[in-house]
């Protein structure tokens, strides 16, 4: 279990456990490290849905690049408006949800937690 850290309103943070799992995933794919693409797309029960991908092709020109806990995070500027201050955490165990966005901008979220509204 990971303690929720206080969100920083100006950036996106990666918790220790989330960083560990990102790196474990990279190693399982035979890579030394991995970059993350996070974003938001329209849809999902509450209106906006999180997007999370491991990427290997580097950032796009228009991306904001954030590095935290040894993980590089790429986010497009429009998504960043909805994600600023988010801490990406990892909920493990049998009942865990995997990667979890702790987003201070989310006013409500749907039952499964994958979509939110602002």
């Amino acid at each position: 279990m990971t303690l929720k850290s206080k969100p920083d309103p100006l950036t996106i943070k990666i918790s220790d456990e989330a960083a560990l799992h990102v790196n474990q995933f990279a190693k399982s794919e035979g890579k030394d490290s991995a970059d993350l693409r996070v974003g938001v797309k329209g849809g999902g029960c509450s209106g906006l849905t999180y997007v999370l991908e491991i990427v290997t092709d580097g950032p796009k020109d228009s991306d904001k690049v954030i590095e935290d806990n040894g993980v590089r995070v790429f986010v497009d500027k429009k998504s960043y408006v909805f994600l600023a201050g988010t801490v990406l955490e990892y909920s493990g165990g049998l009942n865990g949800k995997g990667f979890v966005f702790n987003n201070p901008n989310a006013k409500t979220s749907c039952g499964c937690g994958t979509s939110f509204s602002v």
Binding site: G42, G43, G44, C45, S46, G47, T49, C110, G111, T114
Partner: peptide, 8 residues
């Protein structure tokens, strides 16, 4: 699957 308002 999901769309805005689907849960309700």
């Amino acid at each position: 699957g999901c769309y805005i308002g689907q849960e309700v």
